[in-house]
Amino acid sequence: MVSDSGAEPTDADAPRVGIDSSTASGIPESELVPRFWGRLRVFAARQLNDATAAEDVAQETLRRVGEALRAGRVQQPAALPGFVFQTARHVCLQLQRSAARETRALTRAASGDEPEVGPAPAADALSALITEERKLAVRRALYALDSSDGELLRLMYFDQMSAEQIAAKLGSTPGAIRVRKHRALRRLADRLAPTPTSNIIATSGT
């Protein structure tokens, strides 16, 4: 199980059930990238507000989780997502602390004063994760949808209206709007290439 303290899970935290001969755990390591690469980059991009640093976090997290799997520290498949999440949190915290220390040191060296360390500005690093090609494909797919589907998704995602607001506007109920949204999203996904991880791109080129 994962630790509640926020620190990276340790041997004592991870339950040991059914040791696999190939990785000393029951979880194949090859699952990690297709399953968690996109999640890790989105998570880290929001935490750090930096799409490039998000890739570093994703790589470092997968490296640590891979090591843990080989060492048999995670042995229950159900515990893997939580373990990956906590490891990613830990890596992000380390990066943030390191960056804060660096800023403080540089500021002290420059002026002798202690800087004010505040939260990162709420810029949108998430959009930077999506390739230009993907954005274009999404726009084409969106406008190729049935007009009612397209209108609903545009109201929700472009105009940032809630299901309640859209329901009031279209004379419907929020529940019905959510059902329509799911159907519209499924039809949008059908029109988009099935790229479960490749739509989240590598920005550093490594």
């Binding site: 996109g38 999440f85 998430l126 959009s127 994760l129 999506i130 726009r139 472009f158 739509n199």
Partner: peptide, 21 residues
């Protein structure tokens, strides 16, 4: 991190959000 369904919904939301930008 542990839910494929919600992750899939988030992927679509990211797509649309980026397309909105």
């Amino acid at each position: 991190f542990g839910c494929d369904r919600c992750w899939s919904a988030l992927e679509r939301a990211l797509d649309l959000h980026a397309a909105r930008e």
